[in-house]
């Protein structure tokens, strides 16, 4: 339980954190998105599927999950975007390569014309090492899928479709812009600044390092929450999301947290709904997460009553994911219990 004193202290910590990153509270007065430019569905389907380990038949799991959404993948060029931000042999930082390999197989079996794995790692420029050490290189060799380093891909300037940052335009990689379907494949993780890092935050990794650096610091200066929303609002490529929650990360994520076995894969076309569901699975309140609160207004559905669970019931898989102390206010445990 989090009492009022602890909640207020945590909230102060959050405010202080935000103060480090100018723009966190929005640099623009007035409307930050045009209601006519965005049309979200009244409800969004999300599937929570059991997957006990990485040795389970994951391709079958993903195929089954994709089947729940009726995607027509025939002839499509699919880009899978896993999280490969860093490598730590002691940790579980990245989307597991076996899940990525299973997704390659599943999308091919469902008729995709080409499946490419693409990522722009956030800290390191040594792609050869990251692929080798993480095990993704072996999976790519086994499946014959090609890999594109989005950090050095050709970039095209695209005017932002919302006004959450003062960036005005985002440089996006041609590989992503040319895709018929972009599949965000994050790890189920807590994040020491953004509270969680899931399908939406994972798209920081599509932003080319040659333009934004290693790490992609201008996006931090623009406010992490604001940048997450801006990227997701601006990218107009059809999207799908598959979250690796087989073993997640709690605590000091996205790099130095602890492994947390959760035994699930979460899927869906609406990144807001998928991320909100993942937050609930971690016993974190989506409405306390800045970017989900903003995105819920125009990009997708975070509200529990607007999410249709088409797989397993959420309660069976809900766990208590720890967060760093200054984020204690995002936890579900009754923050106003003494009021």
């Amino acid at each position: 339980m989090v009492d009022r004193r602890r909640f207020l202290k945590a909230s102060a910590g959050l405010a202080l954190t935000a103060a480090h990153l100018p723009g966190c509270r929005g640099e623009h007065q007035g409307p930050r998105w045009d209601p006519e430019a965005f049309a979200k569905r009244p409800t969004s389907p999300v599937a929570v599927l059991p997957a006990s380990s990485y040795q389970a038949p994951l391709s079958e799991t993903i195929r089954r999950g994709l089947g729940l959404f009726g995607l027509d993948l025939r002839g499509r060029r699919v880009v899978l975007k896993p999280n490969l931000v860093e490598f730590d042999p002691r940790g579980v930082v990245n989307t597991h390569p076996l899940l990525v390999g299973a997704a390659v197989e599943a999308f091919r079996e469902l008729g995709a014309q080409r499946v490419t794995v693409a990522e722009g790692p956030g800290h390191r420029r040594d792609t050869e090492y990251l692929l080798e050490a993480s095990g993704l290189r072996e999976v790519l060799a086994d499946t014959g899928a090609s890999y594109v380093d989005l950090n050095i891909d050709a970039a095209r300037g695209v005017a932002t479709r919302s006004r959450f940052t003062s960036l005005g335009r985002l440089y996006l990689p041609e590989t992503v812009l040319a895709a018929d379907l972009l599949v965000s494949m994050p790890k189920l993780k807590t994040h020491h600044w953004a509270a969680v890092t899931l399908s939406m935050k994972n798209l920081f990794g599509i932003m080319p390092g040659t333009v934004y650096g290693w790490p992609k610091n201008p996006l931090h200066w623009a406010g992490i929450d604001n940048s997450i929303v801006e990227i997701n609002a601006t990218l107009q490529v059809p999207r799908f999301n598959i979250v690796d929650g087989i073993v997640g990360m709690e605590g000091d994520g996205p790099i130095q947290g602890e492994p947390k076995a959760s035994g699930i894969v979460v899927m869906g076309p609406d990144a807001v709904a998928v991320d909100a569901t993942c937050a609930r699975l971690m016993s974190i309140l989506p409405e306390r997460i800045g970017y989900l609160r903003e995105a819920d207004a125009f990009l997708g559905n975070a509200g529990e009553d607007r999410i249709e669970l088409v797989g397993e019931p959420l309660e069976a898989y809900r766990q208590d994911y720890q967060v760093v102390e200054h984020l204690a206010g995002v936890k579900e445990a009754a923050p106003f219990s003494d009021s």
């Binding site: 333009v211 934004y212 290693w214 610091n217 201008p218 200066w221």
Partner: peptide, 13 residues
């Protein structure tokens, strides 16, 4: 020096 003007400094740049 930063990667991008107006942001923090990093080792490589």
């Amino acid at each position: 020096w930063p990667w991008v003007s107006g942001s923090f400094h990093w080792i490589e740049p």
